[in-house]
Design a protein around this nucleic acid. Structure first.
Length: 616
DNA sequence: GCAAGGTC
């Protein structure tokens, strides 16, 4: 019996081969420089000892395309909603490797990631294998279910295969078709017309994508809120007392009011009293929680915030560290670790470091906490964690140094105790108004000692006050303030918005931001220590142009359509709807929007022109 | 030349 195993990426093929073979395998090269074919023997429960070849793909190896008669310039873009679609093999050498290895195999076992795309890639692998060996049927394929590379988990996955999930495969096929038809049709429409109108240069593209435009929409939306912001005056009462040579400010529990006269009235009443009364002193324990296990999105937000590193750079650095075997797979939505994970083994590898080694040693000696469990699980990868130790001075790239240190410290923090503090609050009554002041004492820093990126510090202490104490109001003022505009968009905020609205995935969020930057729709502006993302005049014009069109209940620049698609895809996965059903519905929505867009494309170009002229 | 999703 000969079994062909195929993983989604070379690193998985290698690790799984090591585990299943017990280290006894031989290696052959393929025509792709990243892909190796591993040969070994493994005892499958129902088949006994089998000859196994384990290899991999490198992600998808096919893509959608239009036949020649529907290529750019050969038809009006509107026809792309119903044009034939053909499947193009984009990595022939990978495809051929599978077909060749399948020839003398009796069975195919799929080892792709256990997520939707992985399921689809599994189906691509099946098609390649059946091209080489027509006796391989889809119903006979084994599909192994695994979410990390712990030895027993992999052995168990090898022995308990399931079937490919056709629903998930159909959901991905649906997504691909929608994104392809919508992206190509709108991109050709925009590009052709904006070039004719000299809004963009001949070589430039004005692309539309179901993720690109909602992303741009977030940036434009924020920009407009900042620009259109009108400050409003408000009033409040502030109080200061002095005791033990110390000033303490109290804040009004009512906050602030936009009605000056009302505040003046309350303030007048207070002024009848020279003294206030401390009505309540309360001390309570408070905790500052250790961080959750690290996901890609969190990594990108933090690197952007802490190191001022773009999401793309952070992911690139993490990718390199992963390829060198220093950290685990960096593209994950999972914010928990498997119960079986040997945390101590990870600490042990870090004890030699001069910076965080002593802390890791302390966790080993004094015990550690189980990491918190977040609520996300992509069923494909564990949270990001260090795998092997590397001295950061030996890393040449500065981004890699920062990201590695961050990943290690984050992991150690996850396994540490929460920080503990004590918060004291005092309530002061002045006339009929109440005010509060608080003071925090950090009692045990715990995880904060290793997680240097987070600040949680003791504040100025409250003076000794007792309940019922009467105290002189040193100063009681009615103060005027004004509301301030929101800040321009930052990259961590944009990532968070995309994540929350289901725009892109952990692996692609950074790419979408970079793409709309390369298209000239957004620009990054540095002010002080912070980098802000603002729309370009062209980006503004495009969003404004679409928003002025009279669509029925939909928006091409807001996240709702993408979310609707995402929900419908989930229904396909759950077996509640068919792919054709969803496809015809979503296509109809976009076809209609396309019709309106093409009718109004001249006014869109005009809006772009106007906004660009205003910003010359 | 166009999308978004994998991965290198």
């Amino acid at each position: 019996m000969k079994i062909l195993c195929v993983a989604e990426k070379p690193s998985i093929a290698k690790e799984v081969s090591k585990i299943l073979s017990g280290g006894r395998f031989t290696t052959r090269n393929s025509k792709n420089k990243y892909i190796k074919n591993y040969d070994f023997k493994f005892n499958f429960p129902n088949f006994g000892t089998c000859d196994v070849t384990m290899t991999s793909v490198v992600g998808h190896m096919t893509n959608l395309d239009f036949p020649p008669s529907f290529q750019w310039g050969k038809c009006v873009p509107g026809r792309l909603f119903d044009a034939d679609i053909i499947e193009k093999i984009t990595k022939p050498e990978v495809f051929e490797n599978i077909a060749k290895e399948a020839k003398n195999s009796h069975k195919l076992m799929i080892w792709t990631d256990c997520d939707r795309e992985g399921e689809f890639i599994g189906f691509e692998i099946f098609k390649a294998a059946s091209k080489g060996n027509c006796s391989i049927q889809v119903a006979d394929i084994w599909r192994s279910r695994f979410s990390h590379l712990e030895r027993n988990h992999i052995l168990s996955a090898a022995s308990n295969p399931i079937q490919l999930d056709m629903n998930a495969i159909n959901a991905v096929a649906c997504r691909m078709e929608v994104d392809f038809r919508v992206g190509t049709s709108f991109t050709r429409l925009l590009t052709d017309n904006l070039r004719q109108n000299r809004i963009i240069e001949k070589g430039e593209l004005a692309s539309y994508g179901t993720c690109q435009f909602p992303t741009l929409g977030f940036v434009v939306d924020r920009y407009k809120r900042v620009k259109n912001f009108i400050p409003e005056k408000f009033w409040y009462i502030s109080v200061e007392i002095r005791k033990q040579n110390q000033k303490t400010n109290f804040t009004w529990t009512k906050g602030r009011y936009f009605d000056r006269l009302y505040v003046a009235l309350l303030y007048q009443e207070c002024l009848n009293h020279d003294e206030g009364i401390i009505t309540k002193i309360e001390s309570k324990g408070t905790t500052n929680w250790r961080p959750l296990p690290l996901t890609t999105v969190e990594l990108q937000k933090d690197c952007s915030r802490i190191f001022k590193m773009s999401a793309k750079r952070a992911l690139d650095a993490a990718e390199k560290l992963y390829n060198k075997g220093f950290i685990s797979y960096p593209r994950t939505e999972t914010d928990k670790f498997p119960d079986s994970m040997d945390l101590r083994a990870v600490f042990e590898k870090q004890t030699g470091d001069v910076r965080w080694g002593p802390y890791a040693a302390k966790l080993l000696a004094e015990g550690h906490e189980r990491p918190r469990n977040g609520s996300h699980d992509d069923k494909a990868h564990p949270a990001i964690h260090p795998v092997n130790y590397v001295q950061i001075d030996s890393l040449t790239a500065i981004d890699e140094k920062k990201v590695y240190e961050y990943v290690v410290r984050r992991f150690l923090a996850c396994c540490s105790k929460d920080a503990v503090g004590s918060q004291t609050s005092a309530t002061l009554q002045w006339g009929s108004e109440t005010f509060t002041a608080t003071g925090l004492v950090v009692l045990e820093r715990n995880y904060l000692d290793v997680y240097i990126y987070k600040k949680w510090e003791s504040t100025k202490q409250l003076p000794l006050l007792s309940e019922g104490e009467r105290i002189k109001i040193w100063s009681g003022m009615m103060t005027e303030g004004k509301t301030s505009p929101p800040n321009h968009m930052t990259e961590p905020e944009l990532i968070a918005l995309m994540d929350a609205n289901g725009i892109g995935t952990d692996a692609t969020i950074a790419e979408h931001i970079e793409k709309i930057a390369n298209r000239g729709y957004i620009a990054k502006q540095k002010r002080g220590n912070t980098e802000f993302i603002v729309p370009s005049p062209l980006g503004m014009g495009l969003i404004e142009g679409f928003e002025q069109m009279d669509f029925e209940n939909i928006s091409l620049s807001k996240p709702f359509l993408r979310k609707l698609l995402e929900n419908s895809l989930q229904q396909i996965v759950d077996g509640q709807r068919s792919k054709d059903d969803v496809l015809s519905e979503v296509k109809q929505i976009y076809r209609q929007a396309y019709g309106i867009s093409s009718q109004n494309i001249t006014s869109l170009a005009q809006i772009c022109r106007t906004i660009m002229a205003e910003n010359q």
